[in-house]
């Protein structure tokens, strides 16, 4: 089966502006993508993960045709591509949702008599039919996000590119949208989807494969369970004070520790070490530093992912 999207060895470097004071100076270079290989098959959801500035949006824009790659090949075999851009300011707020879609439908090449039924169908699919004629300025953030999906669906794309599926949506809305993308759009209708997200739980929930980008390079790719790791145990303890010597001793025993400082109390988290002796030693170090007894925190275990992205937490 042919893939809907195939990127091979894609490089993208952004160059900063020429400065007026030093026009001869070399332009600042920002490596956005380096040698990226990626494929999206029909009926597959691929999630792009990575810290801020990893190159996720650039990759999506290259696939959408809004940015041109410097090197490598971009094969789009999908009959049509729908792009759901991040952010909600991509509509004409004084026009209704239906009028916005009508306008974009013509731009997307949909012809006369087909426009109205396509617009109505797209609005119905995202649950906005009842509010179709309200001005977009009266829509909530979630409704605007759904309208962005409706716009992407106008051309009945076989490949869907989604930049930040969750955005600032609340949990139930995100969950509903995630179900809609995976079950309705991709699994039932055999589309492909490339979804950038910061939410690891979301990637686990909808992705068939995840691709982790760091500094423009793919550092891991595969099924989410394999890439993000089995949920290894993690421990946390409340610190009476941040004792740097104790934390260094703790790191020597259990590896990297994550300290979250608060105005009144601070916490330390670390992954379960391989041997029980090291864990016992860690408990002892914490007790001597006046920390609370360390407890298992099964819901906060993203250690594998954090190690993939080099310990960065701005994900």
């Amino acid at each position: 089966m042919a893939s809907y999207l195939k990127l091979s060895g894609v490089d993208k470097i952004y160059r900063g502006p020429v400065t007026l004071l030093k026009p001869w100076a070399a332009r600042h270079r920002i490596v956005a993508l380096r040698g990226v290989d990626l494929e999206v098959m029909p009926g597959e959801v691929v999630c792009l993960l990575g810290p801020n500035g990893a190159g996720k949006t650039t990759l999506l824009k290259i696939a959408a045709g809004a940015v041109i790659a410097d090197r490598g090949t971009v094969e789009v075999n999908a009959a049509s591509v729908g792009f759901v851009a991040g952010g909600e300011r991509s509509f004409y707020w004084r026009l209704s949702g239906a009028e916005n879609l009508r306008f974009f439908a013509v731009l997307f090449g949909i012809r006369g008599a087909e426009v109205a039924p396509r617009v109505a169908a797209a609005l119905a699919r995202v649950g906005l039919a009842a509010r179709a004629h309200d001005p977009v300025r009266n829509y909530s953030g979630g409704m605007r996000q759904r309208l962005a999906f409706a716009r992407a669906l106008l051309a009945e794309p076989s490949l869907l590119l989604v930049d930040e599926l969750a955005g600032e949506l609340d949990y139930p809305t995100t969950l509903e949208l995630a179900r809609f993308v995976r079950e309705d759009l991709v699994k039932k209708e055999e589309r492909g989807a490339l979804v950038a997200t910061h939410q690891l739980w979301l990637a686990r929930a909808i992705a068939d494969r995840v691709v982790v980008l760091v500094g423009g390079r793919v550092v891991a790719a595969g099924p989410p369970g394999k890439v993000l790791g089995a949920l290894s145990a993690r421990y946390g303890a409340r610190l009476a004070r941040v004792d740097k010597a104790a934390l260094r001793a703790l790191e020597r025993r259990v590896g990297p520790v994550d300290v979250q400082r608060g105005p009144e109390v601070s916490f330390v988290y670390f992954d379960e070490p391989a041997d029980a002796e090291a864990l016992a030693e860690a408990f002892k170090i914490l007790a001597e530093a006046g920390a609370s007894p360390a407890i298992r925190v099964p819901e906060a275990k993203e250690a594998t992912y954090l190690s993939l992205i080099g310990g960065r937490k701005d994900v």
């Binding site: 959408a64 045709g65 851009a85 300011r89 991509s90 004409y92 974009f104 731009l107 997307f108 090449g109």
Partner: peptide, 18 residues
């Protein structure tokens, strides 16, 4: 300013015509 340029031109081809 409105943020609509990329959705308008984000598709392959046709940007000049639009």
């Amino acid at each position: 300013y409105l943020g609509t340029l990329e959705p308008m031109l984000g598709r392959r081809g046709g940007a000049f015509r639009v």
